[in-house]
């Protein structure tokens, strides 16, 4: 089974989601959509804003945390949410991963609940029948 998607999985105190996709850029994109969905982020229609994000990290899991943390920062500090992503992952095999992401979004109309932080708890991107899969716990 291939494709991409996300689903909420049980967690007693915080939020957790399982995300899957064929490749790393799609996995990052689905994780962003999943986090926005859990938080109930609604964007203002019409207005479009573009931002660019670059980061490097020792592995793809750390890069994923950095990417999602950037989205939290934009949400909290600039009231911006993103719905379209063009993500590139570079040098993923060399003990140093880099990402370059163009993100398109809009000012946020409403948020049901903010995510405080993205955790490393049991964070492991694995190859499965669905392609790449990861479980992410979000502190809320």
């Amino acid at each position: 089974m291939k494709g991409k998607g996300f689903e909420e999985i049980p967690h007693t105190a915080d939020w957790a989601m399982r995300v899957w996709a064929n490749d790393l850029p799609s996995l990052f994109e689905e994780a962003a959509h999943g986090m926005n969905t859990l938080a109930g982020v609604k964007l203002i229609e019409g207005a479009r804003i573009k931002k660019h994000f670059e980061a490097k990290a020792p592995d793809s899991e750390s890069l994923l945390v950095a990417f999602l943390s950037e989205l939290i920062y934009f949400q909290e500090q600039e009231n911006l949410g993103f719905s379209k992503f063009d993500i590139q992952i570079l040098d993923a095999s060399n003990n140093e991963c880099r990402t370059s992401a163009d993100m398109e979004g809009a000012p946020i109309q409403s948020v049901d609940k903010a995510v405080k932080a993205v955790t490393f708890h049991n964070l492991k991107i694995s190859k499965t029948a669905r392609g790449l899969e990861v479980e992410i716990v979000l502190d809320v």
Partner: peptide, 17 residues
Amino acid sequence: RGLGHQVCTDYVQQFQS
């Protein structure tokens, strides 16, 4: 608030290496 969340985020990331 967000200040503490960011401090923890920063150092959990740094401490990975």
